[in-house]
Design a protein around this nucleic acid. Structure first.
Length: 223
DNA sequence: CGCCAGGGCCATA
DNA sequence: TATGGCCATGGC
């Protein structure tokens, strides 16, 4: 039902406005945020991001590390872990930040160079990177590098469950469902996933009935 | 106090 | 291939 999914998208868009995601200044900051937010509240990610320092500020503590790929690659693991501590799982994520940054190094930390490559090739490389699963890979490709790949996350699954939308089960199946029922558009994929998260965080958190949800009476089914 | 958050890895069967 | 344990902080 193409019209159904699209109508949901437009209802969310008119209700919440243009989301303008991902909240980050640079493509590399999206990459870092995508790893840090794994199973973690965004507020904690913001605290972790804020802990990265300015390379030119000599008053910073020795463990301070600038938010740049070069600095993260050369940083000692314990120091990096200390910086990202508020994001949780800091020992794992410190390693993951290094491995995903090593991937970015293949393109000389150049976002434009990444954008010249085929989507599926990049997706395969990212999925082969330790610490990068399907959601993180698609978040990076869509939000850092503007590739048309739909992001499926916990919010997306809850969203389908509550509406309800029978998008199937499993990451690849749900992703394919959305992509098959929407125009292949970076802007639509970007906005739709952002709106699902924004709407979910506001109205449809886990174990909470949806109150004031713009989607209508169907939304509120707990499944 | 317990539950949960914009997952992914790894061991086991 | 499909579960289940594990990782860890901070907000509510």
């Amino acid at each position: 039902m193409i019209s159904t999914i699209e109508s949901i998208y437009h209802r969310l868009l008119s209700h919440h406005g243009h989301p303008r995601w991902w909240p980050a200044k640079t493509p590399y900051e999206v990459v870092v945020g995508a790893v840090l937010t794994q199973n973690t509240a965004w507020g904690n990610v913001e605290k972790a991001i804020a802990n990265f320092g300015d390379a030119h500020d000599l008053s910073l503590s020795p463990q301070s590390i600038p938010l740049s790929p070069e600095a993260i690659l050369s940083a000692d693991l314990p120091d990096l872990a200390a910086v990202i501590r508020p994001a949780g799982y800091f020992n794992q994520k410190a390693v993951y930040l290094k491995t995903v940054t090593e991937w970015f190094a293949k393109y000389d930390f150049d976002a434009a160079a990444v954008r010249r490559e085929p989507l599926e090739k990049l997706r395969g490389e990212l999925l082969a990177t330790k610490g990068v699963g399907p959601e993180t890979a698609d978040s990076i490709l869509l939000y850092a590098f503007d590739f048309p790949t739909f992001v499926v996350d916990a919010y997306t699954v809850r969203f389908c469950d509550r509406y309800p939308i029978d998008a199937g089960k499993g990451y690849a199946v749900v992703k394919a469902y959305f992509e098959a029922n929407l125009p292949r558009s970076v802007e639509v994929y970007n906005n739709f996933h952002a709106l699902i998260v924004i709407n979910g965080a506001k109205h449809c958190r886990k174990k909470a009935l949806c109150e004031g949800c713009p989607l209508g009476v169907e939304c509120g089914r707990v499944g």
